[in-house]
């Protein structure tokens, strides 16, 4: 069995993997690095459960070979979670009941994390588009939408605060 050596940065840490050519990034993250927060659902690009960030952009972890990620930066759900507790978006998911079985949640959170990093005050249309490639069979999506809208709204308020402080100074 031919193995390929791949060096990449995962959640801020340089790692070198020895993988078969056919091994997907999602399988390598789970199997080689123990990062089991990345879930595998359909394994052929339909469900979005395995979404990870490749150089900051959401991609399907099952449709990328680990061997293709040489020199890239990969971020998984573990990489955006604080050591203890939840980040703001995750906390908003909890408060809005935006998950039930939790299988789609890492992919949903990463898709929305990438959107809010690019567009902190994203509107409903942008949020819907951002998670259009992530299937959820529990929530009916509306609580997920509300969780993301809540964070966008809170960012909007923070921005308004900052600008009013600046203008009064």
């Amino acid at each position: 069995m031919k193995l390929f050596s791949v060096t990449l940065v995962v959640n801020g840490r340089a790692v070198t993997l020895r993988v078969e050519a056919r091994q997907s990034l999602a399988d390598a993250l789970r199997g080689e690095l123990g990062l089991t927060g990345t879930h595998l659902g359909c394994e052929h690009g339909v469900c979005g459960a395995c979404t990870v960030l490749l150089d900051g952009e959401p991609v399907r972890g099952c449709l990328l070979l680990a061997v293709q990620t040489e020199g890239t930066e990969v971020t998984t759900i573990e990489g955006i979670s604080p050591p203890a507790g939840l980040n703001e978006l995750q906390e908003s998911f909890r408060r809005h009941h935006a998950l039930q079985c939790g299988y789609c949640t890492p992919g949903m959170v990463l898709s929305l994390h990438a959107l809010l990093a690019r567009d902190p005050t994203a509107d409903e249309e942008a949020i819907r588009e951002a998670i259009s490639g992530n299937l959820c069979r529990c929530t009916g999506y509306l609580p997920i939408l509300q969780a993301a809208l809540h964070v966008a709204q809170s960012n909007r308020l923070k921005r308004a605060d900052t600008s009013s402080t600046q203008s009064s100074a």
């Binding site: 690009g45 979005g48 979404t51 490749l54 952009e57 959401p58 991609v59 399907r60 449709l63 990328l64 898709s111 588009e129 951002a130 259009s132 490639g133």
Partner: peptide, 9 residues
């Protein structure tokens, strides 16, 4: 065509 993650690749 697809979704943001599929269009990214």
């Amino acid at each position: 065509v697809g979704h943001p993650p599929t269009r990214a690749r």
